[in-house]
């Protein structure tokens, strides 16, 4: 990274002047309004608390943060998305990686067709995906009911408390394997042909070529995909919030940290505490994403 910056600086013809602001300015203006201002406002909100009887708010310093740290609902929600992250993300990324390697291998019949179809769920709106899977999971007219009839059992209950988290993981996996596959596939495309020729001349087989040529070329893409997936897991909201109407007793108002923050605000009117929960979650996410990025780039050297 530092090296490329130096190279860039040395390269002649880089236009030095402030006219670049013409192009960057509009983006930054909207960015400031929709990213920086809400962050600042959230921090401001988190330092105050509504007064129960007198109305208005009073400055409480970091008290809200101390409350979040001791809030068992918050930690339950956090533990749930952490478990989700640790199990679902590796499964999803490995599936995406295998699919990308298979499509890139030139050993597949109809590789283009596979690539398009596997990417297809990404074009399905998340809401529709959840509604669809939710009905499929259901006992009324879903495939789960058909499967139970077929097997003569009643054991497949995707919307029960035991199955709920895997059921959500399945929806997220179905939605995003194709997207991650595309990230990996694009990275594989940038491998120069000479590297494959060199590997072939050295007598490397398929597995060896994957390990020595393809995986190193994929490292950056894997780090990026991992960071996006971590952020996505911690933000989990759409799937449980929509499934909640189908299984109101299983999914609580604090099923994930994001649902907790949402329900604090819009069902409980506790805007200050909700902002604090959002900030704590944001900080945790940013720290973990940063650590993954550091580890990823250190291993790359």
């Amino acid at each position: 990274m530092a090296e490329s910056v130096v190279l860039r600086r040395r390269r002649a013809g880089f236009h030095r002047d402030s006219k670049g602001w013409i192009f960057v300015g509009p983006f930054l203006a909207v960015f400031a309004l929709t990213f920086l201002a809400p962050i600042g406002y959230a921090i401001y909100l988190s330092l105050f608390r509504e007064q129960a009887f007198f109305g208005g708010t009073v400055f409480v310093g970091l008290d809200n943060y101390l409350d979040v740290i001791q809030d068992s609902k918050f930690w339950e929600a956090f533990g749930r998305v952490l478990l989700f992250l640790v199990v679902q993300v590796p499964i999803m990324l490995v599936l995406a990686l295998l699919a990308a390697l298979a499509i890139d291998s030139a050993r597949l019949h109809g590789a283009n067709f596979f690539r398009i179809v596997i990417f297809l769920p990404y074009a399905v709106p998340g809401v529709v995906a959840v509604l669809m899977w939710g009905y499929i999971y259901g006992n009324n007219f879903g495939l789960a009911a058909d499967l139970n009839d077929l097997l003569g059992s009643t054991s497949i209950v995707p919307l029960s408390a035991r199955w709920m988290l895997p059921s959500i993981a399945n929806i997220v996996t179905w939605e995003f394997v194709g997207y991650n596959m595309l990230i990996f596939y694009s990275a594989l495309r940038t491998v120069p042909e000479e590297l494959y020729e060199a590997a072939a001349i050295d007598g490397a087989g398929t597995i060896r070529t994957i390990r020595a040529v393809k995986l190193p070329a994929l490292r950056g893409a894997i780090v990026i995909a991992t960071i996006f997936s971590i952020i996505g897991s911690f933000q989990l909201f759409n799937e449980p919030n929509i499934l909640r109407t189908l299984a109101p007793n299983v999914i609580t108002t604090y099923f994930t940290p994001n649902m907790y923050a949402y329900n604090l605000s819009f069902a409980g009117q506790q805007f200050n505490y909700s902002a604090t929960v959002a900030i704590v979650m944001g900080v945790i996410t940013a720290v973990i994403a940063y650590v993954v990025q550091l580890r990823g780039s250190r291993e790359a050297m």
Partner: peptide, 30 residues
């Protein structure tokens, strides 16, 4: 273009991308 403040733009953007979008939702709404 290499203009003054370009590196600051990078830093701010990278920092902001790590903040979960939905963490911003409630304050944005308010």
């Amino acid at each position: 273009y290499k203009f003054a403040g370009r590196r600051a733009v990078f830093a701010v953007l990278l920092g902001a991308v790590a903040v979960p979008g939905t963490a911003l939702a409630v304050p944005t709404f308010l």
